[in-house]
Design a protein around this nucleic acid. Sequence first.
DNA 1: CGCTTTATTGAGAGATATCAATACTTGTGG
DNA 2: CCACAAGTATTGATATCTCTCAATAAAGCG
Lengths: 251, 251
Amino acid sequence: MNQAPKLNSINKCSTCVLGQFCIPVGLSNQDLEKVDALVKERISLKKGDALYRHGNPMSSVYSVRFGTLKTEHTLADGRAQIIGFHLPGEILGLDAIGDGYHQSDAIALEDSEACIIRFTEFESLASQIPTLQNQFHRILSRELTQDQRHLLSLGSMRAEERLAGFLLNLSERLTARGYTNYEFDLRMSREEMGSYLGIQIETVSRMLSRFVEAGLIQIKQRHIKLIDIDGLYELAGLNKPADTSAIRICT
Amino acid sequence: MNQAPKLNSINKCSTCVLGQFCIPVGLSNQDLEKVDALVKERISLKKGDALYRHGNPMSSVYSVRFGTLKTEHTLADGRAQIIGFHLPGEILGLDAIGDGYHQSDAIALEDSEACIIRFTEFESLASQIPTLQNQFHRILSRELTQDQRHLLSLGSMRAEERLAGFLLNLSERLTARGYTNYEFDLRMSREEMGSYLGIQIETVSRMLSRFVEAGLIQIKQRHIKLIDIDGLYELAGLNKPADTSAIRICT
DNA sequence: CGCTTTATTGAGAGATATCAATACTTGTGG
DNA sequence: CCACAAGTATTGATATCTCTCAATAAAGCG
């Protein structure tokens, strides 16, 4: 997000640095070429553009190539709930497979690009390549796990805990992608954080100020630095992962 | 739940009345036999028994044959969040595909039975039967959609709205399975409802009393009758489905 | 039938929402 | 390059919803 990882290729999964987070995990070179053949189109989004909208017929799923997107559900009375923030390598649109229509809106939080994976063709390729099929199932399943952790947060944790957990989760995901440890730019507004966490913008702001006072973080506008990591994990009621910097894709 | 649907077969997906909610949707008879060969084992659970527990290595996913289960996540300090209640025909354990270990506890709310679907074998069968593969993807995707609706509820709705939405959702799912419209037994305690909805047991109780006063429902212990359906949908901020009684599997 | 669990109801406390005022950023056009 | 407008963020005061604590009642179970 600060600086994008350098992309070694323009248009191929087989050489994309995001491969290890994306569809191609574990594929042989030969199989990768078949995926290359399938994923040829990409879509560029300006900040605020929709990748898809609720109710659109679904023909593809997408992987984030660079940038950040949010997905959200909206109620009739205008209340909106952000379901997720999506970083490079993450797959979008999976919730549309069930009935063929997108269930949510996917909006770019900054200028972004997504790879288009035509779903019918992908499904038949997956049935020919067991590793690909299995990886796809893992991705779907992890998406479920992620949503369930989010449910745990919204259902059982207080505002402070939710926010601490959110910052740590973002940090972990960015670190895995090779960005600077514990220091990054938030691509979403305070309001969008609040929507994701089920709290109001004023509460987000107050909690962040409290974290600063407690020496847990430093924050200037949307640039944040996590100072007391252990303190944050404790506050969030979570366990610190063994080594968040184990996986790095650029130096 | 009141009366179980009559089961026409003992041990085969091909004749199971739950087929239309479960894995076999859309399969030819020939393909159904292959599924029959795969899903031979079942597991009986007494009320309170665990189908699996958080951290268990995962080798199978399960479909509920009869009864009701809950899945829940637990925090280190003992706080628990119920993620879902699971009715006959619904698939359990999908969140374990991602890393091979169950992420949640699955507990029977009443005496129940589940079919055991050995996952590795299922995956290879799915790669041979496109309809089966596609149905499995739909199931996974709908599970995502369901969790996302739950997120919307916990993140954006007040206690009253969450509870109304929950009762209607249960009613819709039971109706689809052929139980009496709008009148059914709750298999979960008030506390379990509260956990699912992210509210305390006392609040659940108060809201139910309020619904009774408002003439929206009648309730005696765990037997509930929805009286003013339109009123409930309005309260929940949801749209009434066109026809909830369209699908019936017993009379 | 008595004990344990579950559910209801009340009173008061607390966390977060709401309303409101101000300050800070960012982008735009002169 | 500055000034203004529009959007975004912070902070304070108050209101409200839901929680917590407590007492009672009802139901399930051995």
